[in-house]
Design a protein around this nucleic acid. Structure first.
Lengths: 211, 211
DNA sequence: GCCGAACCGGAACAGCACGTCCACTTGCCC
DNA sequence: GGGCAAGTGGACGTGCTGTTCCGGTTCGGC
């Protein structure tokens, strides 16, 4: 999102013409909807262009590659995740914060097939994706630490476990798009129950996944 | 039109020539290996043919379509699953039988990306796939019932929960093929812990997925 | 050995995806 | 209003896929 204030640095992209900017917005919206319902690889660039009411060349002028389009589309979702983690950090009860993050992210995945895929794929650095990812990783690590210190999260929860959970949830979204919201909630509920440390806890089933 | 009386029914496929049969076996083995390491859609028919040391036409002579090849390749895995469910039914402890099935199927998925995908996709009826699936569904339903009756499996476990579990596991296999075995074991261990009914059990987090 | 049918391999076909080019149009600054 | 750079859309190129065709080859019963 570039500012339209006149004194821009020479290396910044120049401001778009009004019609071009409008097309750009329509493209992103069209792509977001298509990706959400049908996933990333099932949606063709032509289809995005057609849905946005522009030609293919226009699409490629704004986003030189499909990957760039994907990055741009999900930058917003990533920002939402950042806000979500920050909200959870503000929560007084560490366990509640921990659950909130997981539940909300999985719910986001459940209703957006593209986001589900994109949040696990190695996306390029465009659009500050990596920065948001890093921010979220740190925030979630803090959440995890606090939840463990309060004795509510099982001690062997590792950083790889979040990814484990997201991958599992993504599997549901990918294989049952229609019933994904309900199925995802069920999965998350089951997993959170296992992740909660109880006073009389059964022994740890298996060590956490490293990495 | 003279019909010769033959030892085999006329509608049965005639016996293959020795070299053709050999090629067929090599094709299936090549396909199995390729599918296992790289998944179903990432493997091209050309690659299977090359790996089997035959031409493309030979491959298509045996398996008129890629789907037919996939069905044939995973018919063996399906048979293994049938045996696995039958073994679990022979187990004296219902909960152990229940866990065995889930652990072993997920382990099979974890080391075979193709099987992971195929066990969830709607495969065609070729090669008795549907029959094995039906057999397994019945067997697993019996396992479930017995585990519930013994009070070891939480009462709200539904038929859709197995699929839920398989989809979650498949998500791990699809997104982290290298660390899939360990990650899958961790996921299964966590989920089985939640699925186990304890005397002092926390309330059911969410109703089971229907269907 | 021989001969025909079964079999084989690679070239060729068709379809679809991403990405590019170019002649035409249009917003914007004066 | 007028000129021009930016923008546009559809045809095109390229590369990949699954699938088919055809001339040459080989097995196997006699």
């Amino acid at each position: 999102m570039t500012t339209l204030v006149s004194p821009r640095p020479d290396d910044a992209p120049r401001a778009l013409r009004a019609d071009a900017l409008d097309n750009r917005h329509r493209i992103i919206e069209a792509a977001r909807q298509s990706f959400a319902t049908r996933g990333l690889e099932e949606v063709t660039m032509r289809e995005v262009a057609r849905r946005a009411g522009v030609g293919v060349a226009t699409l490629y002028r704004r986003f030189p590659t499909k990957e760039a389009l994907v990055s741009e589309v999900f930058a917003a979702q990533m920002a939402a995740c950042v806000a979500l983690v920050d909200d959870a950090l503000a929560e007084s009860d560490p366990w509640r914060g921990f659950c909130m993050v997981i539940e909300k992210v999985c719910a986001m995945q459940a209703v957006d097939r593209g986001f589900s895929r994109a949040s696990l794929a190695n996306v390029s650095d465009e659009a500050g994706f990596a920065r948001s990812l890093d921010h979220n990783a740190r925030g979630f690590a803090a959440l995890t630490r606090r939840a463990k210190e309060s004795g509510q999260l099982r001690a062997d929860f590792g950083p790889g476990d979040l990814r484990l959970l997201l991958m599992a949830n993504a599997g549901i979204v990918a294989n049952a798009p229609d019933s994904a919201p309900a199925a995802s909630r069920r999965l998350v509920a089951l997993l959170l129950q296992s992740l909660r440390a109880h006073p009389a806890d059964p022994p740890v089933p298996l060590p956490a996944v490293t990495g």
